[in-house]
């Protein structure tokens, strides 16, 4: 691999821009049921901020902070949250992902339980999409050789 020269401009701008981008991604995830957005879009923005970090800094350096093992665990956790909320609804006697029934176990009334269920689903989707985006980028950028030695 070629020697990499650090660049002050790119690294400074990334350090300035990445926190607002991640904050905006969390806003898109949390505000998804009132405005355009949701779990998938917010997760894509969050994943893009990590990809920007990978491009601006050395890949090995960032991978020490965000390891492949952690990434895989996050990916499956997101799917688990999604499927788990759906299955809880199924166990309580309603259809799959029918959040209205959640008011039996949450101390809120039915409409609020529906909103909370949607929020939980979107958080799960956001986590899964973020880690899958990072994983796809790593696999393409390093031609599948990123595992093991950083």
């Amino acid at each position: 691999m070629k020697e990499r020269y650090p660049d002050v401009t790119i690294e400074t701008i990334c350090r300035l821009l990445i926190p607002p981008i991640q904050l905006f991604a969390l806003y898109v995830i949390a505000h998804g049921h009132y405005s355009p957005g949701g779990g998938f879009q917010g997760g894509c923005i969050l994943g893009a901020s990590f990809i920007m970090m990978f491009i601006a800094y050395d890949i090995g350096e960032v991978k020490r902070k965000m390891q492949e093992k952690l990434n895989t665990i996050l990916c499956s956790t997101g799917v688990l949250i999604f499927a788990g909320i759906g299955l809880i609804c199924l166990i309580l006697g309603a259809n799959y992902l029918d959040y209205g029934i959640l008011h039996n176990i949450l101390p809120v009334h039915q409409a609020k339980a529906r909103a909370l269920g949607t929020l939980g689903i979107e958080i799960g989707v956001g986590i899964a999409v973020t880690s899958v985006m990072v994983s796809i980028f790593l696999n393409i950028a390093t031609a599948g050789e990123h595992e093991g030695e950083p």
């Binding site: 070629k2 020269y5 660049d7 401009t9 790119i10 701008i13 821009l17």
Partner: peptide, 20 residues
Amino acid sequence: VFIFVANPTATHAIAKAGMD
């Protein structure tokens, strides 16, 4: 403001990648 900050940086990054 985001465009004003990000666009010149992206241009700089692409030109630097071409130079490298």
